[in-house]
Every structure is written in C-alpha cells, then in structure tokens.
Design a protein around this nucleic acid. Sequence first.
DNA 1: CCCACAAGTCGCT
DNA 2: AGCGACTTGTGGG
Length: 166
Amino acid sequence: MKTPFVELTVKTDDGEFNARYSETGLTELSFPAGKAKLPVSQATRQRCPTKILGWHRLTEAALKAILAGRQPKKFPPLDLAGTVFQKNVWQALRKILVGRTKSYGEIAQAIGRPKAVRAVGGACGANPVPVLVPCHRVLAANGKIGGFSGGLERKRRLLAREGVKI
DNA sequence: CCCACAAGTCGCT
DNA sequence: AGCGACTTGTGGG
C-alpha cells in the first residue's frame, strides 16, 4: 500500500509549520499550533521518498523567503483539494507577488465571477496552503484588513514583513 | 432540495 | 460610523 501522504515539519522563527504531501505535491500547510505536533520527525522522514524530500526543501525555502518578505524563486508542486471555484480562486491568489495586495472584489473579477466576492472570501478561508498561496494578501475593498483563518494578528504581521501598510 | 451562513461591497442616512 | 440590501458558493439538514 502506498502512503497516501507524508507529513513533515518546517522550523521557522515563527514556530514549526506542518506540511503534508501526496504523491503529486504539497496538499496542506498548517500554522504552528503552539502545541507539540505529531511525532513525525525521524520515522517518517526516513522512509520518505526522495521526491518528496526535494519538494519539502522547496517548501521550506519558499516559506522562509515569504516570512522574511522576499519573493521565493521556486515553489513545490501543489496538490490542492477543492471545488473548481476554489481552485480558480487559489490560482488567482498565486499571482499576487510579495508586497502586493488585491481586494476580494478584484479576485472575483479575475476569475470571471465579479459578483461572487463573498464566495471568494469563503474560498480564501478554505485555502489549504496558507502563506505559499497568499490568502493574507487579500484585503477588503475599502483597504481594511478583512479576515484570516490563521488569526488577524498573523495576517497583519505577514503583511508588515512584506512592507504592506494597511 | 431548501435553508443559513460567510475572510464582501455598495448605497444611503 | 453604522445599517440594510444584494449576491453567490458551500455545507448541513
């Protein structure tokens, strides 16, 4: 039986992120939960396919780059599970570079559903790979902060590091 | 299938 | 600043 996914951690100055991979790519990235994470380290890492270790290096580099406010050169392949609408939104989000922002309305327009602004918010919240898929760079039309599943404080801090003023 | 909700937005007071 | 109307995708009953 093939491993459906592999779970690895990324240590950053902000804490330990948790990354999950399928046979196709990165499926999920979670913020440090404060608590000790699953006892994943050695055992999983050792029987982890070389392919995935390579992706993980890319994940690690990209994540650290963004946390430091720099644009990553390369991303790992993503394997995002979601509805067609959600994937469209996430794809649009990936076009926002470090230090840039868009409104929920602009995203809605970019995917051809100009009135689905509220649904776009929902899709952002359902984003399984925060930071790499920059849901934190989406603000409300009036320039206000909007929401964030990982906590507004975290969103503010991410934006601040990228040099964005609210 | 119907109903309620959401990380929005716009117009009016 | 506050409030209501409008909208659409999603998840639960």
